[in-house]
């Protein structure tokens, strides 16, 4: 007795791959190219505007690009750019660990909620940039401090999303886990609740990553004598606009690249989620 009511099933052994919206593959490529063309057009417009600029405030794109290349191939790569990015990533990693741990505690043991929610909501509302000058005065401006500041700022979206994700787990999954595992908290939490909450958790991680970059820049603008953020600010103060824009672009590219990598990793981890969504949409 077989009931052939499945959707188009992938061949055996092949993991499920979510389809894009356009049915025809060719069309997707055309669209991608068109998008890039628009972007290139904007850069071209920048170039023109820069060439004809009389105020001296907008260097043409080609100059900026050249400066970018110079920075990335010169010594500033290892003295400024890479350490900044590394600090941001370290802070993000640290913040994620803190955020997820605290998020699991707050999200799973709901009895604590009325007690812990108000202080958590307050702490998270404090703008982390405001803590940077204070932290500098209190602890001195060192590498460790900057990483910690980034971590403590970036942990909030991770914490809140982990907490939220765990709370919104379908009770049915929890019930099934209680029936089919030993029933201990670690089993139910680890085998059912966390996988179910993963989409929400990665959403928080993504926001945390963006926040790490922001905090990295801020901490360097306020309290540093090296790094990408410092480079940008210093250039502005010296009215050296080309390196300033170059720095901003490098930062933008780094952010874009990291986000891309993150999205790719997220998609692999959440193949099932994409599939489910696709089904609901279709």
């Amino acid at each position: 007795m077989t009931m052939h009511e499945t959707r188009k099933a992938p061949p055996k052994g092949v993991p499920f791959r979510p389809r894009g919206r356009s049915r025809v593959r060719g069309l997707t490529v055309v669209r991608a190219v068109a998008g890039m063309a628009v972007f290139a057009l904007l850069l071209f417009a920048w170039e023109l505007a820069g060439r004809h600029d009389t105020t001296g405030l907008l260097p043409p794109f080609s100059d900026v690009a050249a400066e970018m290349a110079a920075i990335l191939t010169g010594e500033r790569l290892t003295t400024d750019v890479l350490p900044s990015v590394l600090r941001a990533l370290l802070g993000f990693a640290l913040g994620s660990v803190i955020g997820m741990t605290a998020g699991v505690v707050l999200g799973w043991w709901r009895r604590l909620d009325p007690w812990l929610r108000p202080p958590v909501e307050f702490l998270r509302a404090v703008p982390t940039p405001a803590l940077v000058p204070i932290a500098v005065v209190a602890f001195g401006a060192g590498n460790a401090l900057r990483v910690w500041v980034i971590a403590l700022g970036a942990c909030w979206p991770v914490l809140l999303n982990t907490m939220d994700g765990l709370r919104r787990v379908e009770p049915g999954y929890i019930d099934s886990a209680r029936v089919y595992t030993s029933g201990r908290t670690t089993a139910v939490l680890g085998r059912a609740a966390l996988p179910a909450a993963l989409p929400q958790i990665t959403s928080g991680l993504r926001i945390g990553l963006a926040l790490s970059l922001i905090l990295m820049v801020i901490s360097e603008m306020i309290a540093s004598s090296s790094g990408l953020g410092y480079l940008i600010l210093q250039s502005q103060r010296l009215y050296a606009l080309t390196p300033m824009y170059a720095g901003v672009l490098i930062l933008a590219c780094t952010g874009w690249l990291l986000t891309l990598l993150f999205s790719a990793a997220e998609r692999r981890a959440l193949v099932w989620f994409e599939g489910m969504k696709g089904r609901n949409h279709a």
Binding site: G172, D175, V179, G183
Partner: peptide, 22 residues
Amino acid sequence: SDVPEDVAVVFQEYNRSLFPWL
């Protein structure tokens, strides 16, 4: 006290009890 080892349950809503990531 808790769900005994050799008891199995089939719930009403399959889409909320079967694990979608597996």
